[in-house]
Amino acid sequence: MIKTGIVGGAGYTAGEMVRILLGHPQAEITWIVSSSHAGQPVYNVHTDLTGDTNLTFSEKPDFETVDVIFLCMGHGKSVSFINENQIPEKVKIIDLSQDFRHKAKARDFVYGLPELNRPAIVKANKIANPGCFATAIQLAVLPLAASQLLSEIHIHAITGSTGAGQAPSGTTHFSWRNSNISIYKAFEHQHLIEIGESLVQLMPDFDQPVNFVPLRGDFARGILASVYLDCSLSLDEANQLYDDYYAKAAYTSRSDEPINLKQVVNTNKCLLHLEKHNGKLHITSIIDNLTKGASGQAVQNMNLIFGLNEKTGLYLKPSAF
């Protein structure tokens, strides 16, 4: 059994991590650290886990008892945690913040998008888990980048309220979010950096704008990204390109039919749908921001690191109705 520890155990991604790991046949949770809830049962915070576990939150980590730790803290806190703790070399680290995603700050972390960096992930000791928007958008265009076919990219993408974290704010509480939609961080979202670095990794000469307009949706979880760009391929050629690129991908696939969020919510899947309109290729990409966009992808990376089938523990049914 892979012995796991979770640091920052009270947030949405940690709750999703616990839910997934409790059902993982080859992993077990050794401890869950939350300084603000130390000594309390985990189900007091993650009430959906009532009856599933009797684990209690710990105040401090015990690195000698685990094989891998998941850092589920807020952005900027993972760097401090690693600097302040002597983590043994034998302990793998999977960080779900943005602290190590960018090449200038990566240290010895591998960017953990399996559809891009699978060979490096398998050999890695430290993983920087991708951002949720970044995952959906990159999976929409990686095949084009790999074939040197990218042009200026236009993206509108909408995310559920869980993407903003568990701490309440002016734009996450129910009375504001319900029956509402809004734009935020247009053209300057933080995930643009990791998106750009991945595209250049596959297409070194790419220097076109990536125009990204994120939207807040009035639903809890999921991301739908609508991406379009000029493309000389016919629809049949584009479909074949995507099928070939993702032929060995465990969780990313193309649908001939139009797609909707309920097909992926609660799963680790990314579904893609392509259409051609007057010289432009339109790609729809959908994921669950808490699974493929966070905790599910982190467990997928853990599976790869420890030599398991990457689908282990991730056979999750979508909330289709």
Rank of each mutant, 00 (worst) to 15 (best):
L144C: 03
V7M: 15
L271R: 10
Q201T: 12
D207N: 11
S34H: 02
T4K: 04
K248A: 15
L192T: 11
G131W: 01
M203V: 02
R177Y: 01
Q263I: 13
P114A: 15
F70P: 07
I20W: 00
C132Y: 00
F219G: 01
A247W: 00
G11P: 04
L150T: 07
I305V: 10
G9C: 06
E16K: 07
G15N: 08
I305R: 00
K280L: 07
N289P: 04
A124L: 08
T159M: 12
I286S: 07
I82E: 11
N117W: 00
P25G: 03
I259N: 11
N44T: 14
L233A: 06
F109Q: 10
F306C: 03
A247I: 06
L235W: 05
V110P: 03
N129G: 07
Y242K: 10
V122I: 14
K317E: 15
A146Y: 01
S285L: 13
L261P: 01
A120M: 11
Q166F: 09
C132W: 00
A124W: 04
R221N: 15
T50V: 11
P114I: 15
S226R: 12
I6T: 14
E310M: 06
A120Y: 05
Q297T: 15
P143L: 13
A186E: 13
V141A: 03
I2K: 03
I121G: 06
K103E: 13
E237H: 02
P168C: 14
F133N: 07
I259D: 13
N44V: 11
N178E: 15
P318D: 10
D218S: 14
K185W: 03
P25A: 07
H277W: 00
W31C: 08
F100K: 15
L142A: 07
I223R: 01
V7D: 11
H156D: 15
I6C: 14
A146T: 02
A128Q: 05
I153D: 09
D230Y: 02
F63N: 09
A294E: 05
N117Q: 04
T267K: 02
L96M: 10
A106G: 05
Q201Y: 05
V227M: 09
A164K: 02
G222E: 06
N309V: 10
V66G: 07
T13Q: 04
F133C: 09
N239H: 03
I121V: 11
D243H: 15
L272Y: 05
K60D: 12
N117R: 04
S319Y: 01
G313Q: 06
G163Y: 01
S147I: 04
F57S: 10
A167R: 14
S234H: 05
L274A: 06
G217W: 01
K311H: 03
L261A: 02
I259C: 14
G9S: 05
T30D: 09
P61C: 12
V265Y: 00
H273N: 14
T252I: 09
D48C: 04
N278K: 10
Y245C: 15
S182G: 04
T162Q: 06
N268K: 08
I305D: 00
G279A: 10
